[in-house]
Structure formats: C-alpha cells, structure tokens
C-alpha cells in the first residue's frame, strides 16, 4: 500500500499518465498510430535519443550538464566511417569508438574536477570542437558504404525486434540497476544532493564526477554506432540539437537540474513522450514549424506540472 502511494505521487507516474493520454489522443486521431509497426517504429526512433538521454541522466543527477552529446555522436560516426574505409576490422572500430567515448568523458571530468571549470562551459566548448572536428575529418561530406556487420547494430533485427531497440533496452536496464542498487549509484545521487556532505561521508566525489561524464561519453559512442548503422551513412550534421532533446527528456522524466533527483525509468518515459509527439504529429501531417512549437509547449507543460507539484509539497 505504501508502495502504491509513493508510486502514484512520483513524477515518473504523472509523466507516464501524460504519455498514455497523448498516446490515446493520437490513437483516436489516427488509425495508423496503434499498429504494431508504428509502435515499434516509435521505439526505434526513440532508441538513439534514449541511449544519449541515459548518459545525460547520470550527468544531470550530479547537477551537471553535457551539451556536447550531439556533436560527439556525430564525431563518433565520422571517426568510425573513416576507420572502416581505412580497412580497420569492425570489432576494432567499435572498440576504438568506445575508447573515444571514454576519452571524451575523461576530458570533461578532468576539466571539471581538476581545473574547476563549470560543466556548462566545458561541454559547450567540446560541443563546438567536436562538431568542428567532424567537419574537418569528413570534409563536410556524408560518408557511405559500410560492411553489413557494422550496419547490423543500427539496422539489423533479432527476430522481429530491431537490434537498436535491444541495445537501448539493455543499456537502460543496466543503467537503472546501477543507479538503483549499487553503492556507486547511491553515491551519484549523494554528490548531486550535497557534494560537500558526500565528500565528508567518505565518497570520492571526483571519481563520481569522472564516472558520470565517462558514462555520457560512452552513451554518445554507442548512439553514434547505432545511428550510423541505421542511416548507413556518417553525416557531419548528424545528431544536431540532440543535446536539447536529451536534456528535455531527462527533465520531463522528473529529474532536477539541481541534481540528486531523477531515474532512468523517468528518462525513458520522457524520451518516449517526445518520440510519441514527433511520430503523432507526423501522422497527423502537422506542418514542421508547428511541430517544433508544439513539442516545446509539451515540454513546458510537463515541467510546469512537476514544478507546481514540488512547490505544493514544500510549503
């Protein structure tokens, strides 16, 4: 009974209800919406956003932010494309790509913990640098033609379900377990809630910060792999603006930019909400300019409801 009460009052549950309501609306408006094909399509569309948003959740839980994610995804795609064209075997390309993600995270962690730079500024800088390098390496051109073993991660299927969705759900499961049930996960919340108290309680706060930015970097590398495989192409302008969608999804899912509050489940609901809105508006032939406006309005509403709720409970 206690569990159901906390469940009912949780931010995640309220957003979930919102997701159901919007879903019901689109199902009513369009016969195509509720088809299995379309629902799987939404999940597929959301999987890349979702992988990035999972990394973003880790960072936001520590009251940080990672603006570089979109550019890092694009850079990861272009680097892999060039390596593949240079004859590097697929398994090694994927490994190097993951190491690249780790390196980006370490660079962020170092700048934030050792040099003391603000996460917003550091990642704003890497956002520009990574996008710049993407253009330099690709010469501004789209790179095509990869071995099928590589494209499998973006466009392959295992049974009826696409590999991208499986990667997304597995990754989400591991992330949720880590945050919910491990000491490290608890420490991430602690650092976001009160970093001084965390250090005095014996938490190695610098390691924790390194860790969350590394998770974000790895998430970008995985997203880069899936995205490039799905498109069958590495585009220098890929994933532009993804950082804002990822942040929006995390916040819609009930996390606080002040840190210490949020869950992976919430983030996934947030990602799905954005995915459903995008998909539904396409089905209803909403003009693209209005799509952007409506998406913004829904994000505003979702966060507003949560803020009002918190305001009430704090008095």
């Amino acid at each position: 009974m206690k569990l159901s009460k906390t469940l009912l009052s949780s931010s995640e549950f309220i957003v979930f209800l919102g997701l159901l309501a919007i879903g019901a609306f689109f199902a009513f408006m369009s016969p195509v919406f509720m088809t299995k094909f379309n629902l799987l399509n939404i999940l597929l569309q959301s999987s890349i956003q979702g992988i990035i948003a999972i990394g973003m959740t880790f960072v936001i839980l520590t009251a940080g932010i990672d603006l570089s994610v979109g550019s890092v995804v694009a850079l990861s795609g272009v680097l892999m494309a060039l390596m593949l064209h240079g004859g590097v075997p697929v398994w090694l390309v994927i490994l190097i790509n993951l190491v690249f993600g780790v390196a980006v995270g370490l660079f962020h962690g170092f700048s934030i913990t050792k040099i003391g730079m603000a996460p917003f500024i550091v990642t704003l800088a890497t956002m520009a640098m990574a996008r710049g390098l993407t253009m330099v390496f690709s010469d501004g051109k789209t790179i095509f033609d990869f071995p099928p073993a590589f494209e499998f991660f973006g466009s392959g299927n295992i049974g009826p379900i696409s590999v991208a969705i499986i990667i997304f759900l597995l990754y989400a499961f591991v992330a949720e377990m880590l945050l919910r049930s491990t000491v490290l996960g608890r420490n991430i919340y602690a650092v976001g809630s009160n970093i001084k108290a965390a250090a005095l309680s014996g938490i190695r706060t610098r390691w924790v910060l390194y860790f969350v930015y590394v998770v974000s970097g790895i998430s970008c590398a995985i997203a880069g792999l899936v995205l490039t495989g799905r498109l069958g192409a590495a585009m220098p302008t890929a994933a532009t603006g993804y950082e804002l969608d990822a942040i929006a999804a995390v916040i819609i899912g009930g996390a606080s930019l002040m840190g210490g509050k949020g869950t992976i489940i919430g983030t996934i609901i947030g990602v799905l909400l954005i995915g459903v809105i995008n998909n539904g508006m396409n089905l209803l032939n909403v003009p693209p300019f209005w799509q952007s406006f409506l998406k913004g309005a829904v994000i505003f509403l979702a966060v507003m409801i949560d803020s009002l709720k918190n305001k009430q409970s704090e008095v």
Binding site: R186, Y189, S193, K196, A197, L200, I203, G260
Partner: peptide, 25 residues
C-alpha cells in the same frame, strides 16, 4: 560537520539513506 544543511545532510533523501551513506562507503 557543524553545517547540517550545507555539509552534513542530504536533503531530498529519506532518514534511512542519510544514516547509512557513510557506512556503505
């Protein structure tokens, strides 16, 4: 720490998690 709010407690977290934060380290 003397500074309960600033350096000792994790506001937004329940009593039990606050009590065990140090021990689980």
């Amino acid at each position: 720490s003397e500074d309960r709010k600033g350096e000792n407690l994790f506001f937004g977290n329940p009593i039990w998690k606050n009590i065990t934060y140090l021990a689980i380290q």
